[in-house]
Nucleic acid binder design. Structure first.
Lengths: 113, 113
DNA sequence: CTCCTGTGTAAGATACTGCTTAAATACTTA
DNA sequence: TAAGTATTTAAGCAGTATCTTACACAGGAG
């Protein structure tokens, strides 16, 4: 969990995840998408993502192909369910209840969301 | 987005989010849950969470009460939808298709998930 | 005004992250 | 075997994060 969230906290690694989401792609092709950083740096990011279980690798000759492993996000997704979906729904229900008894306006005041 | 994910990448901050999820709770009461770290450290975590928009604060006299602001997770939750829900569903559909034409077994091999 | 409580801010030590360059490994091809 | 390609590993450095202690600030009570 901690490893997962630290892994996706980095923007480069999230960009890598976008690249490997729909298709397999080689390390070199991944690195080509980041001209600003060196290949070793990309390789280090890939290792972190593999260790965190977020991507998997397939070796084919010289090259290594990476792809998303969505299961790796399962635990973190559960955290979001607990901390986002459920509380937000509760907030919504509270707002509806406020409409019926419009005494106190407390939930998310006049903030331009 | 980056700020959000970096904020929740820290285990102490996630624990704080758990505390403020269902109820308002004062800074001191939050700090009391973390005997291992000092009060200023907790205060710094709170500031990071507020800045990231994940919690909100209400001042009442001396004390400050914190509570979850689930909207703060919306953008990150969308990322999970893209990177977890959707790919996982695609994976599932692919597996079902494999069942009909059991030629290649490639998705999530004999790994004890 | 003065003291006490609750909380945040400042400054500094330490540890970690992410990057780079240089070198190593592994496979392929001549 | 030797050279070339794809990729990772090693070592080191700059920037950042997190913690601590010491201090400052704000509100309530006497």
């Amino acid at each position: 969990m901690d490893e997962t969230l630290r892994a996706i906290a980095d923007p480069t690694r999230r960009a890598i995840l976008m690249l490997v989401r729909d298709r397999e792609i080689s390390a070199g092709d991944i690195a080509a998408h980041f001209p600003a950083i060196s290949r070793p740096a990309v390789s280090q990011h890939l290792r972190i993502l593999v260790t965190a279980g977020l991507i998997q690798v397939r070796r084919e000759g010289n090259r290594r192909f990476y792809r998303l492993r969505p299961h790796g996000l399962t635990e973190a997704a559960a955290f979001f369910e607990t901390m986002w979906s459920a509380p937000l729904q509760r907030l919504k229900q509270a707002a509806e209840h406020e409409q019926h008894t419009p005494a106190t306006a407390e939930e998310e005041p006049t903030e331009p969301c």
